[in-house]
């Protein structure tokens, strides 16, 4: 199964959720974290991750903080207030979707 395709539309929700539970994160850390949590089942590709992060940034859902680490600059992303609200509604949306899928896949005939 092409696992990555399944999650394509939900990348923004995944990112928001990750940032909600991790204060601030940088790009590479996010790819590693997703791999770790899903035990390698889901891989966010680099080519999709950054445009998604930049989109969240442009929409004001995340804020950026820059720190110097090991002689290079590291760009951290963290949720803004608007981003926190958006996370709640996006998660609710996703849950609703999963519920619908559940009923579709396991219809209860009564």
């Amino acid at each position: 199964m092409r696992k990555t395709n399944l999650f394509k539309g939900s990348i923004h929700t995944i990112l928001l959720k990750l940032l909600e539970s991790n204060d601030k994160m940088y790009g590479y850390e996010i790819t590693q974290k997703v791999k770790e949590v899903t035990r390698g089942d889901l891989k966010i590709t680099e080519g999709a991750l950054y445009p998604a992060l930049h989109k969240l940034e442009a929409e004001g859902l995340v804020d950026v903080e820059v720190q110097q680490v090991d002689g290079r600059l590291r760009k951290y992303y963290k949720l803004t207030e608007k981003g926190q609200k958006e996370t709640v509604s996006k998660l609710a949306e996703l849950e609703k979707y999963l519920e619908t899928m559940q009923t579709l896949l396991n219809p209860k005939f009564s």
Binding site: G27, Y28, H54, V66, R72, L73, R74
Partner: peptide
């Protein structure tokens, strides 16, 4: 430049990993 620096950092992290 902000994208440059984050990609440099990303590549660097990957290589060190």
């Amino acid at each position: 430049y902000d994208v440059q620096m984050e990609l440099v950092d990303h590549m660097a992290n990957g290589i060190e990993e």
